[in-house]
Design a protein around this nucleic acid. Structure first.
Length: 591
RNA sequence: GCUUUCGUAACUCAACUGGAUAGAGUGCUUGGCUUCGAACCAAGAAGUUGCGGGUUCAAAUCCUGCCGAAAGCACCA
C-alpha cells in the first residue's frame, strides 16, 4: 500500500466515524511544499451538502483522525487538510521500497495481455526523422506495462505490402536492375545481388515523385502491387528479397534506440486472413458496393450528414464526417484499413490480447477510429477488448513546420542519431573519455529520448537539435550524470550499507521525490504519456544533487550516519535506473 | 465548409485531471571547484494562462462566443 493510500485510509476512518461518505476523498501531493507534503480538499467539496463551514468540518476530521505515528494532520483556511509525513513514515517507506523487487512500483490488480504496434517502418523506404517518435513512445509504454505487471507483446507491423513495393519494383525494372527476372532468359530464382540499400533509397523516392505526374506509371505500379499481393512470380520473389535486405537494416536502426520487437510481422502476414475478413463483413451484411469499391458504413447516429452543395461541381462535404471504410479497392486490391482489420483478426486468433495499442502520429486518428469501429461491428474484436490509438503529435522544426533540413529535404533517421552520438563523443573527450562509441550512443540517445518523452504525447513539439545536443539542465544526461556520481561514491565505499534514516531536509526531499516518482507511473499508465515520469525522475535526480553538494558523504565522520547516507545513494540509484529503463534510456557507469 | 487537437515567462515545456502564491529547463544577472565528478549547486529578474462572457466557495483546467495555429475529411500508408 502506498503512503497516499494509507493517508486516505486514516482520514477515511475519521470521516466514516462522523457518518459521512468517503467517495469524494482523494489525497494529492501538495503544491505548497513549504506547508505540507500531501493535501486533500475533501472538506471544501462536501461542506455544502453537510451544511457546515469547510474549515469547521476539516478541523473535526483532523480531530477524529487523532495521533498517528507516521502522519501529522492539520486543518487550514479555507478548509484544506494538510498532511505532513513524519520522518518515521518516510523511513518506513524508503526501506520498504529498497526491499521490494518492484522498487515500490504499484502492480496492476488484474494483469492483462497487451499487444503493442509501433515502429512504423516500411520496407524499401529509408527511415527518416518522422520515424523516431513511434518507437520511442511505444517502447516506453510497453516497458511501463511490463514494470507494472502486465504481459506484453510488441509487433513492428512492417509496411511491407503497399503501393511503395509496387513502385519500387517498377522503378528498378525500368532502370534495368531486374533484367535477370524479365529478359529473354528470365530466371525467377535470380538473386538481387546488384541491389543495395543505397540504391533502394534512391529508387523509391524517384518512383514516388513520378507517380504523382505520370498516370500510366501509377497504374502499372498499382498492378505490380496487386501481383505481389497475389504472390505472382517473379514479383513476389523480388519483393521477398528486397524485404529481407530492408528488415536487417531496420532491426539495426531500432536497436540503436533500445527498441526491440517480439514480432517482426508485417502487413503481408495478415494477407491469409484478408479473404476471411471481407467474408465476415459481407455475410453479416455490413459491406456494400460503392463506385466499384467495397465499403463499410461506420458512421453512427448524427454523423456523416451531407451538407447541400452550393454548386453541383463542388465535392460533397459532410457535417460530423465519418466516412465509410473502404475494405476493397475498385481493382480488387487491399488497403490500409483491410490489412489492419485482418491483422486484428490474426492477433486475436494467435494471442487474444486484452488490449491492442497502436502508437502512430495523430494524422491517423480517423483511420484507426474507422478500423476499430469495423472490428467492433463485425465482432472481430470482442466487446471486452480495448483498442487504443496513442496519437502523438508531429515533430516540428523551430519554424513550427515539420522538421526539415536547411535545404528543405527530409532528415534521415541515421543522420539524427549520428549527430547525437558525435556530439556526445565530443563532450566525452572534453572530459578525457575517448573512443567509447557505445557510451556516446547511450548519452546521445538518452538526450533525445528524454527530450521527446518529456512532452505530452499528443502535442506537436519542436525538435530542437541544439537543445538536445546541449546535455545541460533538464535532460536525460543530467539523470545519467547523477547516477554516474553515485557510482563514483559507491566505488570508493567499502563495508556494509545501512538503512535510510532521514536526518535532513535534503533527505526528506529525496524520499518525497521517490514517492512522487512512484505515483507518476500510474498517471503514465492511464494517459499513455511519459511526461509525468520524466519530470519526477528529474526532480529526484535534482533532489539528490542538492544533497550531494551540501553533504560530503564519504567524509562523514559518524560511521553509522555514513552507512545510512550510502543507503540513500543506493536508494536513489535504484529508483533512477528503473525510471530510465522504463523510458528506454540506458544508464551509464561513468561519463 | 466540416471534424479533431491546441494557444501558459524572451524560448522550449509542466501544472498530479476543479484547489492555496501558475512551476521547471534554456537564455540573462550574480555567487560557489585545494575536499565524494562543475554535464553540478545556490540566488535574482521575467506572467492580464489568446480575447470576452458564464458555471462555483474555488477555473490555465468545465460550458459558450469570437481570434489564431496545425492536422484530417473515399480507393496512399
Amino acid at each position: 500500500m502506498t503512503l497516499r493510500e494509507e493517508i486516505a485510509k486514516t482520514l477515511g476512518k475519521a470521516i466514516t466515524k462522523m457518518g459521512l461518505g468517503t467517495e469524494k476523498l482523494s489525497v494529492s501531493f501538495s503544491n505548497r511544499p513549504e506547508l505540507c507534503d500531501f493535501q486533500t480538499s475533501f472538506a471544501l467539496m462536501v461542506a455544502k451538502e453537510v451544511g457546515k463551514k469547510p474549515i469547521e468540518l476539516a478541523e473535526e476530521i483532523v480531530k477524529n483522525a487523532g495521533e498517528n505515528k507516521f502522519f501529522e494532520f492539520s486543518a487550514v483556511i479555507p478548509g484544506f487538510i494538510n498532511v505532513k509525513v513524519k520522518n518515521a513514515g518516510l523511513n518506513a517507506y524508503a526501506n520498504d521500497v529498497l526491499k521490494d523487487k518492484n522498487l515500490g512500483i504499484e502492480q496492476v490488480k488484474n494483469p492483462r495481455l497487451l499487444m503493442f504496434d509501433y515502429g512504423g517502418a516500411n520496407v524499401a523506404k529509408e527511415l527518416h526523422v518522422g520515424h523516431l517518435r513511434s518507437p520511442i513512445v511505444g517502447e516506453a509504454i510497453k516497458r511501463l506495462h511490463e514494470a507494472m505487471g502486465d504481459k506484453t507483446i510488441s509487433d513492428v507491423h512492417l509496411g511491407d505490402y503497399g503501393l511503395q513495393m509496387g513502385l519500387t519494383i517498377l522503378q528498378l525494372k525500368e532502370d534495368g536492375y531486374l533484367n535477370a527476372f524479365f529478359g529473354k532468359n528470365a530466371n525467377p530464382n535470380a538473386k538481387i545481388t546488384n541491389i543495395t540499400l543505397d540504391l533502394l533509397n534512391e529508387e523509391y523516392p524517384k518512383a514516388s515523385k513520378r507517380k504523382d505526374v505520370d498516370e500510366e506509371f501509377k497504374e502499372k505500379a498499382d498492378l505490380f502491387t496487386l501481383y505481389i499481393q497475389q504472390h505472382k512470380e517473379p514479383y513476389f520473389g523480388i519483393y521477398k528479397q528486397i524485404k529481407d535486405l530492408s528488415v536487417a537494416e531496420i532491426k539495426k536502426n531500432y536497436e540503436l534506440l533500445n527498441t526491440t520487437f517480439d514480432l517482426y510481422l508485417g502487413e503481408s502476414d495478415a494477407y491469409p486472413y484478408i479473404d476471411e475478413t471481407i467474408d465476415i463483413f459481407v455475410k453479416k451484411g455490413l459491406a456494400r458496393e460503392s463506385e466499384g469499391a467495397l465499403i463499410v458504413d461506420v458512421a453512427r447516429e448524427g454523423e456523416h450528414i451531407p451538407i447541400p452543395k452550393k454548386d453541383p461541381s463542388e465535392p460533397q462535404r459532410y457535417k460530423n464526417p465519418m466516412p465509410p471504410a473502404i475494405i476493397k479497392k475498385y481493382n480488387g486490391g487491399d488497403l490500409y484499413a483491410t490489412t489492419d482489420i485482418a491483422t486484428i483478426l490474426m492477433r486475436n486468433r494467435d494471442y487474444n490480447p486484452d488490449e491492442i495499442v497502436y502508437v502512430t502520429d495523430n494524422r491517423q486518428s480517423g483511420h484507426f477510429e474507422q478500423v476499430f469501429r469495423c472490428c467492433k461491428l463485425a465482432g472481430i474484436s470482442p466487446e471486452s477488448q480495448k483498442l487504443t490509438h496513442v496519437a502523438f503529435g508531429t515533430m516540428n522544426g523551430k519554424d513550427g513546420k515539420p522538421f526539415k533540413t536547411r535545404a528543405g529535404g527530409t532528415v534521415k533517421y541515421k543522420d539524427v542519431l549520428n549527430m547525437l552520438i558525435e556530439s556526445a563523443e565530443k563532450k566525452l573527450s572534453d572530459n578525457g573519455i575517448v573512443g567509447n562509441k557505445e557510451l556516446a550512443r547511450r548519452i546521445g540517445v538518452g538526450a533525445m529520448k528524454y527530450g521527446d518523452l518529456s512532452n505530452t504525447v499528443a502535442k506537436d513539439y519542436v525538435f530542437d537539435m541544439d537543445k538536445f545536443l546541449a546535455f545541460d539542465g533538464k535532460t536525460g544526461p543530467y539523470i545519467q550524470y547523477t547516477i554516474a556520481r553515485i557510482n563514483s561514491i559507491l566505488a570508493k565505499f567499502s563495508g556494509e550499507i545501512g538503512v535510510v534514516d532521514v536526518q535532513s531536509e535534503e533527505e526528506r526531499n529525496i524520499v518525497l521525490a521517490v514517492l512522487k516518482l512512484n505515483s507518476s507511473y500510474q498517471i503514465c499508465y492511464d494517459t499513455y504519456s511519459m511526461n509525468a515520469l520524466c519530470l519526477s525522475a528529474f526532480d529526484l535526480a535534482s533532489a539528490f544533487s542538492t544533497l550531494y553538494n551540501n553533504t560530503k558523504i564519504l567524509a562523514e565522520k559518524d560511521a553509522e550516519r555514513r552507512k545510512n547516507l550510502i543507503s540513500v545513494c543506493v536508494f536513489v540509484k535504484k529508483c533512477l535506473e528503473k525510471a530510465l529503463w522504463i523510458l528506454g534510456i540506458d544508464s551509464v557507469e561513468k561519463m
